[in-house]
Design a binder for these strands. Structure first.
Lengths: 153, 153
DNA sequence: CCTTGACTATGGAGTCGCTCCAGGGTTTTC
DNA sequence: GAAAACCCTGGAGCGACTCCATAGTCAAGG
């Protein structure tokens, strides 16, 4: 099986497969006489595993760790729990900040009902005012507010 | 005002300020005799504006567009609405995929209650099975499922 | 036999938004 | 006068790809 067929079968782009090889997630496959990569069914399963983990947004370093555990089935699976927990925490943290972000953008969007001159635009006014540390829909009173705060998302 | 003071006042790191200058979001400031950047109050307001937009996760290219609109207040503000709408849509799309992701990771986490041998780990089994296209907690029946689907996050 | 087109190879650069570093010069403080 | 704090430039690194130029390989059609 050549790289193109592997790509079509798994839905992973050819460039990405080669990238995974460089990154050490896939071992270098055999080469045919013309230098083409030749993959075995085991490579297909391994790449499908990687692809599924990536669909779960698990970083490559974690996937590499999971693969090494898969390769040694006698090892303790406690680390697997830990990896999944870490990724879950990461996703939840990002989720919370994005929900706040959505609220802020919605509030901002509500500032401009009818398009007009930019100088009268509520959105722009809001952004400028917020940058100056005035009260705005984005920095609520509960927030630390002002120009020097740390409202990173 | 030198770059360090600007950084402290706005909460933007020195390196980032120089990066914004390179990226064209901040115009090159005057230099004093020793070559140090010397910023005017207008630069402070501009950088605070950028910082606030970044807190809203608006990409630099969009911020650059907003800044050019701010610079020409007679222009139409319709594009501002459009930019905010686009960013809102982007955030919402990402939000939806992350919520699905959280569900999938939670389902995965539920597969392993008690740490044991990796060969018996429900999480690993689930990941491998899912990669092989079998039914799993991640690919629901409603999903297109299987090894060649497009469940990108 | 030759061309066309699909496929594959390599190495390197580009993406985004920073962040860090080396190796220097300058200013402030003790 | 020395130490600490500040500033400069240019370049590399991050994650996870993606795209490119250039070149070799192979099967089908004319």
């Amino acid at each position: 099986m050549r790289i193109g067929e592997l790509a079509r079968t798994t839905g992973v782009e050819v460039d990405t497969i080669r990238y995974y090889e460089r990154a050490g997630l896939l071992s270098a496959p055999k080469r045919s006489d013309n230098g083409y990569r030749t993959y075995a069914p085991g490579d297909l399963a391994r790449l499908a595993f990687i692809r599924h983990c990536r669909a779960l947004d698990i970083p490559l370093a974690d996937i590499q760790r999971l693969l090494s555990i898969v390769d040694s089935p006698e090892s303790d699976c406690g680390e697997i729990n830990h990896l999944v927990d870490l990724n879950l925490a990461r996703v939840r943290a990002r989720l919370a900040s994005m929900q706040a972000l959505e609220q802020q953008l919605m509030a901002l969007r509500g500032q401009c009902a009818t398009p007009d001159k930019a100088s009268a635009c509520g959105i722009l006014h809001e952004l400028v005012a917020a940058a100056q540390g005035e009260a705005c829909a984005c920095h609520r009173p509960a927030d630390t507010g002002a120009t020097s705060d740390g409202a990173r998302p």
